[in-house]
């Protein structure tokens, strides 16, 4: 059980009412052993909020402010430009494919890791995490080295007239690579905590392995899985570095939204760049709200 240190007590409120009339209501812990002096609370809170505001809140607000700088009509025109629409479409396609593949393989991997004991398990977990510690640019580069004109499979692909890099398949591959960890990482801790007792109960009641998975395991982790999907989707739609390397930047064909933003920005079409960016920023906000909601639900599914 975690101790909740911010329980507001009547005592506290009284104390504050007599000593301060602050716009910022500070909490003074009832537990004397844990209370910081008020001046310190104010200073630290001030520093932290200033830092967060400057570094995070203002940049976010700026996206929307710049997007709407020239009014709603210009905003709508920017995001309904054919190139923008093509970029949105490609982004959605890549994200959907990445989500589907990573849900399937991420769930299978999480199942294998949490439901059995085997040697080399921790190595496998590190492997799952690997894409997180690789620079996005390198994540793209490796696919160029495999499938590019001078890559290992390049000549063969050329002979058979298959295009992977500088085309949609390459974008999808790079996206799948960078987003692989999200689903598995959300599921592994939860499934480990839940153990295999429910599965044992289902099996001893005569259920088959597949039925046990779909009727017992999956419902137990559905919120975590949904959260993993959201994170995968957010990263897939926003991935820039890896996709930038493999895309070839062909407008209307191999441009995703982040790449389209780059092009617009480099062409000094700032407002249009921010308009497209605001869609992704909005997606980020939705993801965050969903996170707050889902985390509560996930906490409830652990014993």
């Amino acid at each position: 059980m975690s101790f909740n240190p911010v329980i507001q007590s009547q005592e506290t409120v009284d104390l504050l009412a007599t000593s301060f009339a602050p716009a910022l209501v500070m909490h003074r812990s009832r537990r004397d052993g844990r209370a910081d002096p008020l001046w310190l609370q104010w200073t630290l809170t001030g520093v932290a909020l200033f830092f967060l505001t400057i570094f995070i809140v203002i940049p976010l607000v700026n996206v929307f402010a710049q997007a709407l700088a020239k009014g709603v009509a210009a905003y709508v025109a920017a995001i309904s430009h054919p190139d923008a629409l093509a970029a949105i479409w490609l982004t959605v396609v890549a994200a959907v494919v990445a989500v589907v593949l990573n849900v399937v393989f991420g769930t299978i991997t999480a199942w294998a890791i949490t439901k059995y004991e085997f040697r080399g398990k921790s190595l496998l977990i590190s492997l799952v995490d690997l894409p997180f510690s690789v620079s996005p640019v390198i994540s793209g580069l490796v696919f160029i080295l495999l499938f590019g004109a001078q890559g290992y499979f390049g000549p063969w692909l050329q002979d058979n007239d298959i295009k992977i890099v500088f085309a949609v398949p390459g974008i999808i591959l790079a996206t799948v690579f960078v987003t692989f960890p999200f689903v598995a990482r959300e599921l592994i801790p939860l499934m480990r905590e839940q153990g295999i007792q429910d599965e044992e109960a289902a099996l001893s009641l005569g259920a088959s392995g597949l039925r046990t998975f779909f009727r017992v395991t999956l419902p137990n982790v559905k919120w975590a899985l949904l959260y993993g999907v959201l994170l995968t989707n957010a990263r897939a739609m926003g991935e820039f570095g890896a996709v930038s390397v493999v895309s070839g930047h062909i407008r209307g064909e191999t441009n995703t939204m982040p790449l389209h933003i780059e092009i617009l920005y480099n062409e000094y079409q700032f407002m249009a760049a921010f308009a497209v960016a605001s869609l992704l920023a909005f997606l980020a906000l939705v993801t965050l709200v969903a996170k707050v909601v889902l985390e509560k639900r996930i906490a409830r599914t652990t014993r």
Partner: peptide
Amino acid sequence: FDAVIDIPFALPTAVAGIALTN
């Protein structure tokens, strides 16, 4: 403010890049 901490996780890097530059 607690929720805002995650913005850099969720915001695509290109969006963050142009916002900070601007």
